[in-house]
């Protein structure tokens, strides 16, 4: 096993001299599912955005397959085999479903064939491919967002709370989908608020609070850790960020 994505001593924030993340370290193994949990405002989304180049990094490094990708331009992610599903506003509501997907596949040679594959993978999208994405239901939007991320066959996928706002059944499907990706050799870094369910599908888990690493370990160990259970799994679901 080797780490595909490593984040070391990362400091990043939205305003200069005001880091949100302090000395954050994360390491993601090849074809594994790693989940990041933590209270609201812990900096989970900020961490993902910093990896994607959407938040300026003031110190530390992000390494993908041995190459330093700290502070990349977000539009270069795809070329590096990295994809990102944002927490909110993750589809273009005014574009049709087909246009959303075609946009991501802009530089792909055989766009039509890839579109067909994606429709086969996500049948509900196929039937509505001409509709405006804004007209989709919550679950279908999330499906489209995931389809957009997977369209370019990334090696590493970053997902920010993909199950937020979905019914328990659909949320479970989304998490299963994330899990199934690892079977195809895709590495997944997932932020979740549905801690219990996420830990069941994850291999490894990091806990973040106040922009710092708190704890990490195999998902199973975290799940059975009494302290963690008390703080994070006490039945009280922290409101979605």
């Amino acid at each position: 096993m080797s780490a595909v994505l490593t984040v070391s001593a990362l400091e990043a924030g939205y305003v200069r001299d005001l880091p949100i993340l302090r000395q954050v370290n994360v390491s993601v193994e090849h074809a594994s599912l790693t989940v990041i949990i933590g209270p609201n405002g812990a900096g989970k989304s900020t961490l993902i955005k910093a990896i994607a180049g959407l938040v300026p990094v003031s110190a530390g490094r992000v390494v993908l397959d041995g190459a330093d990708i700290t502070g990349i331009r977000p539009d270069q992610m795809g070329a590096l085999g990295l994809a990102y599903v944002p927490q909110t506003d993750n589809i273009f509501r005014h574009l049709s479903i087909r246009e959303n997907l075609a946009l991501v596949l802009r530089r792909v040679e055989d766009r039509a064939a890839r579109l067909d594959e994606l429709y086969a993978l996500f049948p509900p999208l196929a039937g509505k491919h001409k509709d405006r994405a804004g007209s989709l239901s919550g679950g279908q939007r999330q499906m489209l967002a995931v389809a957009m991320a997977l369209a370019t066959r990334p090696r590493v996928v970053l997902m920010d709370e993909p199950s937020a706002g979905l019914s328990p059944k659909i949320a479970a499907e989304v998490l299963d989908l994330a899990r199934s990706l690892t079977g195809q050799g895709v590495t997944v870094l997932l932020v979740e608020q549905n801690v219990k369910q996420a830990l069941r599908v994850a291999d490894h888990c990091y806990i973040l609070a106040e922009g710092r690493n708190q704890l990490d370990g195999p998902a199973a160990a975290i799940l059975s850790d009494p302290l963690v259970g008390e703080i994070y799994l006490g039945g009280k679901r922290v409101g979605a960020a």
Partner: peptide
Amino acid sequence: ENPALAQVSG
């Protein structure tokens, strides 16, 4: 519509 998402989309 969404410059940040557009960037992420390449």
